[in-house]
Design a protein around this nucleic acid. Structure first.
Length: 419
RNA sequence: GUGGCCGUAGCUCAGCCCGGUUAGAGCACCUGUUUGUGGUACAGGAUGUCGGGGGUUCAAAUCCCCUCGGUCACCCCA
């Protein structure tokens, strides 16, 4: 079967229980926390016209080489979404909801790249976006929701890295200064970084290669290129975080992968993940993006968290544990299975969580199944019980206790035991 | 896209370097010891085209090539 075409495509996988349920709980928790901050859920298409994502900038790898794009039967150029911020801004431009517009989302994104642990071709993100305000405290709110979410998951070793990319003007002045610097130091850069420099000078700051460390360490800092406007904004954000007691470190070399960020950018790093993929979330402000999509100038700020990576961090920190089966009752039928059919249905209608075995297996086999199911109680029905109009109720957890109860008293008895 | 490692039963893996009887172990699964009772113990049982294709050879899980997949690192990102 391993060589078969009938398997999940490269970079994808099936989420089966308990992972499937843990994912759902994760999203539910995020929904609860973000909606308590006034964010409403938005459900977006999983694919868009490719132009929507090309707005992310052709200097980004997400656009250059990771796009899952194809032509549909109507000849449209379509791309599976590599992230959801672009779709949200597109939705904003299209629907023009009243401002401020605060939304949260959860769902899969797609990037065509080489898979490895914590990096898949289809991967889930949860995130939120707030459009319509330039208030630096909105940046703080967005960051704080992410932070409180990590806390709610029980994560302790998360670091918040903070930076500012300045205004559009600051950003391009900085890129100029950086380009000039790197152009002079070119000989000391690794070959890979020299290539990166041509495509996107900012990204050189991201290099993890030792040979680049020296050049990068001495590179000009964005913080020296901030206008008063951007600098005031940045200071307000830091003050806000301090008011909330959220620790952060300013990281002037933090360059996020998407080109649309202005002013505030941030990233959450897990210290617990023993892999290269330690960025578990990130975001920032994108005040220019709405105008690019044909809407009036509208500021925006938001973040996205990777579900898989965040759960990797949870595993490492032994927090947000896997769910347990919640089965309460297992019906064992030693006659022909018809009594289990009726009793299981009856108990389920009463609100109990009930399972049973099929195929007329031996009583021993059914008891084994009952034990493995995690049920607390076995309701046993055999010929004797049927004759006397009773059921045997056996406690599977504690000591070997079992007793016969008249059928009509079964529900009352089970309720007493389980509630 | 680049490089390293890996791919043997449902799962975790041994065997591969030094080709050669019916390819093994543990766990899980099924049956029995207990003809109506799980969790422990003991006994027994089923399961593999040794990832796929090609080659070398009298003979390939074992050697060579290609391919697919996984994994780790780079690139980049969640």
């Amino acid at each position: 079967m391993k060589d078969s075409l009938y398997r999940a495509p490269k970079g994808t996988r099936d989420l089966v229980w308990p992972d499937s349920e843990r994912r759902r709980s994760f999203i539910n928790l995020f929904a609860e926390i973000s909606s308590s901050a006034g964010y409403e859920e938005i459900v977006l298409p999983m694919f868009e016209h490719i132009e929507v994502f090309q707005r992310l900038g052709d200097g980004t790898d997400v656009v250059r080489k990771e796009m899952y794009d194809f032509e549909d039967k109507g000849g449209r150029q379509i791309a599976l979404r590599p992230e959801q911020t672009a779709s949200i801004v597109r939705s904003y431009a299209e629907n023009r909801p009243p401002l401020p517009w605060k939304v949260w989302y959860a769902g899969p994104n797609f990037r065509y790249e080489r898979a490895q642990r914590g990096r898949y071709r289809q991967f889930d993100q949860v995130g939120m976006e707030a459009l319509g305000s330039e208030d630096p405290y909105l940046d703080v709110e967005v960051i704080s929701v992410a932070w409180r979410f990590y806390e709610a998951l029980g994560l302790k070793n998360v670091n918040l890295l903070l930076n500012s990319m300045g205004t559009a003007n600051d950003r391009s002045r900085y890129i100029e200064a950086l380009s000039e610097y790197f152009a002079n130091q070119k000989g000391d850069l690794s070959k890979e970084s020299q290539d990166t420099f041509v495509a996107n000078p900012l990204r050189v700051l991201d290099s993890k290669r030792d040979e680049d460390a020296q050049v990068i360490a001495e590179a000009p800092s964005i913080l020296d290129h901030l206008s008063d406007e951007a600098n005031d904004h940045f200071i307000k954000v830091q003050e806000g975080l301090e008011k909330l007691g959220i620790p952060y470190s300013v990281e002037p070399k933090l360059v996020r992968g998407l080109d649309y960020y202005l002013k505030t950018t941030f990233e959450f790093i897990s210290e617990s993940i023993d892999a290269a993929q330690d960025a578990i979330g990130g975001g920032g402000r994108y005040d220019g993006l709405a105008a690019e999509m044909g809407a009036p100038e509208t500021p925006g700020v938001g973040f996205a968290l990777g579900l898989d990576r965040t759960l990797m961090a949870c595993d490492a920190e032994k927090s947000f544990p896997e769910p347990k089966h919640l089965l309460e009752i297992f019906v064992v039928d030693a006659t022909d299975g018809s009594h289990a059919l009726v009793v299981a249905d009856q108990l389920r209608q009463e609100g109990f969580k009930v399972d049973r075995a099929f195929d007329n297996r031996s009583m021993k086999a059914q008891m084994k199944a009952a034990d493995k199911s995690g049920a607390k109680i076995a309701v046993i029905i055999g010929d004797d019980e049927v004759r006397s109009g009773v059921v045997t109720i056996r406690d599977l957890r504690g000591e070997d206790g079992q007793e016969e109860i008249a059928s009509e008293l079964m529900i009352a008895d089970l309720r007493k035991r389980l509630r």
